[in-house]
Amino acid sequence: MQTILIIDNENERASWLKASLELSGFTVLPPLRWQDVNENRLREAKVDVILVDTNAPERDTLEHISLMSGALEKPVVVLGGKNDPAHIQSAIRAGVSAYITHHVAREDLSGIIQVASARFAEFKRLRDELRHARQELVERKSIEQAKGILMTEQRINEAEAHARMRKLAMNKGKRMAEIAEAIILTHELENPGNKK
């Protein structure tokens, strides 16, 4: 079951929510007050879902932390929206926080949190895949570039350049892309003004 963090300055409301979510089987951490929200706190908390109130002016604080430190990107469920299932659906689809009303029934709350966090995980997986694919593309380009440098400078063929880089990578315990970066940097150092 997921771990939930409630960020709220209203003690009574936070305690009620905590009790209610615990009844649904969630693990709920002690509520955090907004003035105590910072990157370290959120990192330590190891939460799956964050629950906040729509009227909290500090939501932008959370937005910044999650954007700047990818590791802390968590689904945010916002309390205080309209009491309208279609609305909740479209919020989840748009990737903005899931909005739910304060008057939501306990069973519904649990369902919404499940859906929001599943969608978020799926979105994050797709994005990570994309990021990974891009990274690979960039790395492949720099490996090709480094090979080209070796071929010209050492007057060797492509297979030989590749073999030398592979050997170096193995000996140094580094990735091919890192070796390629080093070759390119050295080349740039030795040939200033000759960038790219």
Partner: peptide
């Protein structure tokens, strides 16, 4: 609105 995030949403 209470925050830019809420306004955006």
């Amino acid at each position: 609105e209470a925050s830019w995030s809420a306004l955006r949403d």
